[in-house]
Design a protein around this nucleic acid. Sequence first.
DNA 1: CTGAATTGCTTAACATGTGTAGCAAAATGA
DNA 2: TCATTTTGCTACACATGTTAAGCAATTCAG
Lengths: 146, 146
Amino acid sequence: MTKMMPATDRSLPIALLRARERVMGPIRALLSGAGLTEQQWRGLRVVQEDGPIDPTQIADKACLLLPSLTRILQKLEEKQLISRVRDKEDRRRQVVRIAPAGEKVIADNIEASLELMNRTRAKMGPERYEALLDLLNELDQIDLTE
Amino acid sequence: MTKMMPATDRSLPIALLRARERVMGPIRALLSGAGLTEQQWRGLRVVQEDGPIDPTQIADKACLLLPSLTRILQKLEEKQLISRVRDKEDRRRQVVRIAPAGEKVIADNIEASLELMNRTRAKMGPERYEALLDLLNELDQIDLTE
DNA sequence: CTGAATTGCTTAACATGTGTAGCAAAATGA
DNA sequence: TCATTTTGCTACACATGTTAAGCAATTCAG
């Protein structure tokens, strides 16, 4: 008895993979010009928008695991795009802030980045684009353990 | 002038990332019991379904880059889940086949794997699930270079 | 108040992603 | 036919994903 596997474009994991690759390709190209990876960019943006902020919250908002974020923050600090200090109240914790050079990197790239997403939205059509976001969020809510 | 950034659940790259993570989490857990990574599983399944097959085609069907696939095939060969031989006609090329142990690994896990996807489909509702696949495929067709 | 959890972050180890370079075999063209 | 280009795969380098372990600071139970 042969199990029927869906064609690759009907496989949800693969379809999600391909779609993300399509969206991120041009963004990665843009950021590589600034010497940043996609993940470094996500982390930096969270710090800029929500900082001062601690690493645990950055990881949550940027969808990064803490071990990855540790390395990413080290890189961003080396490049002087952020600064880190220990929290006075709780010395286990750190406070991360955007640095002037970090503000500049964001200013230099945010426009083109938004433009890429707007173009995607326009190409798909705004309704379908929003519908896709809704379905993705719905999928993220699902509890498969039940 | 502050650029408006979408909330993270309205950011397409992040939403795609989270959704994929939600879907793959349980599958990864299942496969780790078999000592396989998600990518090794994808590669192995392509070989089983479409083999004998060469690495370039495996990479295409499994959505893996060739450098990654090289390492993955080495691992699968070490575990004796596949076999590789040079193509007689074109000695640049390889022919990859599933090995008996590989058939067994797939037989032991395919059921639960399919069950997880079916459960996802049921939880979302079949229409929405299909709609999501359609939208993801549509996104994958988009040409952002124009 | 003190020893046992817990928390926040880092390190380590292994695997993959990604871009680039390299090599050998095969196809191409003057 | 021979030099050039292309193709198929591998090697390398750097960055992240993933899981587990480790360490220091803090909290909590008895």
